[in-house]
Amino acid sequence: MWKGIVLVLLGACSFGILSTIVKLGYQQGFTLGELCSVQAGFGMIALWTIHLLSRARTYGLKNKDVRTSFILGSSTGLVSITYYQSVQYIPASIGIILLMQFTWMSMLAEWAFYKKKPTPIQWIAVLFILAGTLLAGGVFSGQSVHLDWRGIGFGLLAALFYTMFIVVSGRVGHTLTPVLKSAWIVTGAFLLITLIFPPVYLANGRFTGSSLWLWGLPLAAFGTVLPPFLFSKGMPQTGVALGAILSAAELPVATIAATLLLHESVTPLQVAGVLIILGAIVAANVRRTLKPAATVQGVKS
């Protein structure tokens, strides 16, 4: 159990520092398309290399699970594009808060498409998440808040696309190994990103003539390689409910990274908002986490 907890926490921390890395990349003069492309490209190469070295069976696009995973990759590609676009206009610490809105969006999506009605405690959690978001966004700070609406819009779009990925990914690709499934997903994401942002940096010398390739390494490692691997190893040990709670660690990690590395100012009210969001996520999932233990206890008695 503890090994699984550590693995899931590490996966969440990997996701958490992505927005800060992207902001630093922007400061070096790299564009949205370049950063998205090198992340997906390096991630695709790494995942396929890991799969081939494992000597596990490879399935092609004739396999239904491969096709759905490949198509699902478009949603992860859109998450990267919209999320990274949002932090061009707003602080990274606000961008991650907007992305975390997938927690209540996924509840509504499962209710709408899979008739899985949220529990009363989950509805209460949604209200607290929204209240925490307003606090964390500085709405009640007493100071004039200057948040670019383009950043807010792209941040919410990123949350919507991430919701699509979360809701669908757990229901497809069961015949594939986690690495092969991730490889096909990232391949789909890379194709979509390439169609939107053609990799002209390969022809104009930007890839080798600058440090762009160096930025691709941490983006791919923390965004496309480590999280799927760590989650696939850790989630079976923790369970989905506890895993969802632990995954929320990306929120404080992103806030801390933005404060330390980007020197973004975070007020006490914003910290309170982050804590409220974390508490709401825990409250929405902790009851399901405790249910298996209660069942086991009942059998023993």
Rank of each mutant, 00 (worst) to 15 (best):
F140A: 10
R206M: 14
S93G: 10
G77P: 06
W111F: 15
F15D: 03
T267E: 15
N204G: 04
C13G: 14
A158I: 13
T82P: 04
Y89S: 07
D65W: 13
G95E: 04
V145P: 04
P236Q: 03
L278H: 02
F15G: 02
A136W: 10
I121V: 09
L191S: 03
R150A: 15
P120V: 02
S106E: 03
W111Q: 09
P118L: 06
A272D: 10
L53T: 01
I97L: 14
K117L: 13
S144P: 02
F113M: 15
A131W: 07
A257I: 01
V282L: 05
G60R: 06
A284Q: 04
F161Y: 09
Q270M: 15
F15N: 04
Y26P: 07
T133S: 15
Y89A: 08
R57P: 00
L53G: 01
G155C: 10
A254N: 00
V274T: 14
G132N: 11
M235Y: 02
R57C: 02
F140E: 10
S75M: 14
V38D: 02
G95P: 03
N285L: 01
L278P: 00
I276S: 08
G33Q: 09
G243E: 10
W48E: 01
G137L: 09
T224R: 07
I124F: 11
W48F: 13
L261D: 06
F161Q: 01
I96V: 15
G11M: 02
S75V: 13
S106V: 11
I152A: 12
A189K: 00
G223S: 07
W213K: 11
G138P: 02
L278A: 06
Y83W: 10
M100P: 00
P118K: 04
T20S: 15
Y162D: 03
G234N: 01
L278C: 04
V66K: 11
R288N: 13
A159C: 09
V286H: 01
S232W: 05
L47D: 02
Y83K: 04
L147E: 09
I21W: 11
I21Q: 08
T133D: 05
A257E: 02
L212G: 06
S211F: 12
Q85M: 11
S19M: 14
K181G: 03
I17V: 15
T119I: 03
S210Q: 10
Q39M: 11
T68Y: 12
V274S: 09
L61H: 08
M105Q: 12
M164Q: 04
M107H: 12
